[in-house]
Design a protein around this nucleic acid. Structure first.
Lengths: 194, 194
DNA sequence: GCGTTATTAGTACCTAGTCTTAATAACAGT
DNA sequence: ACTGTTATTAAGACTAGGTACTAATAACGC
């Protein structure tokens, strides 16, 4: 690690901390074979906070991510909703959604956007997916903004049919037909498991 | 917050730190109207580490979660794999997978287990889901261990059909038919977007 | 050789603790 | 009322991993 210019070192520092944010200045100083103070000047110049702040930031995003990716009712951002009629959501394909090799979005994320929208568009206490008939028409790619539209095609008191299409620009990425069922909260915990 | 016995305070402390792990001893002392030292004795007695350790622990689990939930090829744990023939994975339904109201697993998690297994069982560089025909037979519930079996029913050089069934104990939770396509890495970035 | 930039060193201070010892305070038992 | 036990508070010395600032060198360009 010796024999690096300031620029090289700072570039390497940025990259290293990107995926190893837990190392202290002392560790870094040893790795780059410079003094602790030099590392601190580098961090100052690059606007990189101290270890404990870096760790805290990660822990904080985890908290919000758990509530926004797993915890919310809709995967993606809900843009329009007219209950029992139609709904639109957008979903930005980010690095964590794609295969590393191909930068193609894993199918279940695209399904998740469509499925959660099909469930959200129906107005009832508890809505569950019964069947889904889906087609991945062309891959979703890293960086794309996927726009998902759900249209309710039939709606009786027990079940609804929802037609979903996901597009990137004017190209269709995904289409699906969902059948969802509605239940009262009372029914949910009764009957099926004895 | 005043007028609490030691036991009450310690119980409240455990609960409070459960969902607010970021508060310092000083904050806690103010909230419970006791001295900082008392809080420290409490933490010592309860085996609760200091703030910075708590934060670090959260940040660390986030790192591994990103790699195990989003980053791996299979959602759930792969327990058997015979390429182009069959595969089995298990998936434990945990609090983050269910609707808060009903404790029923969100459909897309069950789909994700099945979809990723259908893709993993096929032996090719790049495998993408083309169509899926799925049925959510009964809800998956918090705490259940879902066992997913994928069977390859046909397998030509371009596409494969995979039949997937997910069970909890001896009850069928989900079934699906997946058509997946195989591609060379060269084909992936050519043709479709121009 | 001189000026500029880069690096190193040292000091005082901060937060959020640790660990230890010691002094009170509160309560019960007899 | 006195004693013993438990609970609480306080004080002191030390730690990690820093910030902010000042000052002294070292290295490089020309």
């Amino acid at each position: 690690m010796a024999g690096m210019s300031k620029k090289e070192r700072q570039a390497a520092l940025l990259q290293l901390l990107e995926d190893k944010p837990f190392v202290t200045d002392e560790d870094l100083a040893r790795q780059f074979e410079v003094s602790v103070q030099t590392i601190r000047l580098d961090r100052l110049a690059l606007g990189i906070p101290e270890v404990r702040e870096r760790i805290k930031a990660i822990a904080e995003t985890k908290q919000t991510e758990l509530r926004s990716l797993e915890g919310t009712e809709v995967i993606g951002q809900l843009i329009e909703l007219s209950l029992n009629e139609m709904a639109i959501s957008i979903f930005d394909v980010e690095p964590e959604h794609v295969f590393a090799k191909t930068k193609i979005a894993r199918g279940h994320h695209i399904f998740a956007q469509a499925n959660s929208l099909a469930v959200a568009v129906i107005n009832a206490d508890v809505v569950l997916t019964r069947t889904a008939n889906v087609r991945f028409i062309r891959p979703g790619r890293l960086g794309e903004r996927l726009v998902c539209k759900a249209l309710v095609t039939s709606n009786d008191p027990e079940r609804s049919h929802v037609s979903v299409i996901t597009r990137s620009g004017d190209e269709t990425v995904f289409s699906g037909e969902f059948v969802v069922v509605k239940m009262g909260l009372d029914l949910v915990n009764g009957g099926l498991e004895s």
